[in-house]
Simulated assay, not measured.
Amino acid sequence: MAELRPDRSRDAAFAWIAAAATLATILVAHVAPARGPAPQPIALSPAEDPGCREWTDSCRVCTRDADGVHCSTPGFACQREALRCSAR
């Protein structure tokens, strides 16, 4: 069996050290708590906003009352837009 030259074993040791350091860095990055600004609350869509009584997407109108949510039927050639609250 051939013996390894001393410089090859040293190179292998450095490769293992580099791999271990890389793995440790990745693990610490995933385990350490995030240090940034506090997350901002996600804006609610009008359908999820309890203060919005009526909303539309320019195709149908939805209303919220004591019985729940009721939406109209969209027209034949409707082109939807972003939801927006039309009555609070």
Rank of each mutant, 00 (worst) to 15 (best):
A38W: 09
D65L: 02
D7W: 15
F14G: 02
D67R: 10
A19K: 12
L4V: 14
D65K: 03
A87L: 14
R84C: 10
A15I: 06
E48L: 09
A24L: 13
A32I: 01
D67P: 00
R35T: 07
L44R: 15
C62M: 09
D11P: 04
A77Y: 10
L83Y: 13
M1K: 12
R35P: 00
R88G: 10
S72D: 10
A32V: 08
A77L: 13
V31P: 00
D65S: 07
C71V: 01
P46A: 05
C71L: 09
F14H: 04
P74D: 08
A13Y: 05
S72P: 01
S72C: 13
C62S: 15
C59M: 04
P50I: 02
C59Y: 00
A18K: 11
S72N: 11
R88I: 07
R84E: 14
F76M: 09
V69R: 04
C78G: 06
A32T: 03
E54Y: 01
R64W: 03
A2E: 14
L23H: 04
A13R: 04
A77C: 05
G36H: 08
T22Y: 09
G36N: 01
R64N: 04
P37T: 12
P39I: 03
A15E: 10
A29S: 10
A77F: 12
A47S: 09
C71N: 09
S58C: 02
D11W: 12
G36V: 00
F14W: 06
T63C: 06
S58N: 06
R8P: 00
I26D: 03
A18F: 14
Q40P: 14
I42N: 05
R60L: 07
L83I: 09
G68P: 10
T63Q: 09
V69K: 02
A12P: 00
A21Y: 01
P39W: 07
S86D: 05
A47P: 01
W55H: 00
